[in-house]
């Protein structure tokens, strides 16, 4: 049985309406106007990933929260699990950009890192 998914391509303002058909081992993309659309459509149905960003409370810092992000993209299905791991931590100032805040978040193998410096207040 072939499965169909409707997506909007995000590579450019055109925003092509893609139809991705998954038929056993074969994936076909229609509605795209360029090869980037095809690649996007295939990735979105086989291995969709996202960068997750949030903030974490800082103790003793010159600002209340430090922005954080996953060091690379993580599977889309793990977004809320990664958010839970972010919600569980607090950090102590000083914080440096790139510091690991959560190691191997939610078993993704990807660390959550600080996205700015926070000095001691």
């Amino acid at each position: 049985m072939a499965e169909k998914k409707e997506l909007t391509c995000i590579n450019c303002p055109l925003g092509c309406a893609l139809t991705v058909t998954i038929d056993q081992n074969e994936i076909t993309v229609t509605g795209n106007t360029c090869p980037r659309g095809e690649a996007y459509g295939k990735k979105e149905v086989t291995d969709p990933t996202r960068i997750v960003t949030s903030t974490v409370p800082v103790d003793g810092g010159d600002i209340a929260r430090v922005p954080v992000k996953t060091a690379s993209d993580i599977p889309k299905g793990k977004i809320f699990a990664v958010m839970e791991s972010i919600h569980a931590v607090r950090v102590q100032a000083p914080v440096h950009i790139g510091d690991v805040v959560v190691k191997d978040a939610a078993g993704t193998g990807v660390d959550v890192v600080a996205a700015r410096d926070v000095s001691v207040a």
Binding site: I51, T53, P67, K69, I97, A115, R116, D117
Partner: peptide
């Protein structure tokens, strides 16, 4: 692809 604070930094 940077976050806003990283770009500012």
């Amino acid at each position: 692809e940077l976050t806003g604070p990283e770009y500012a930094a």
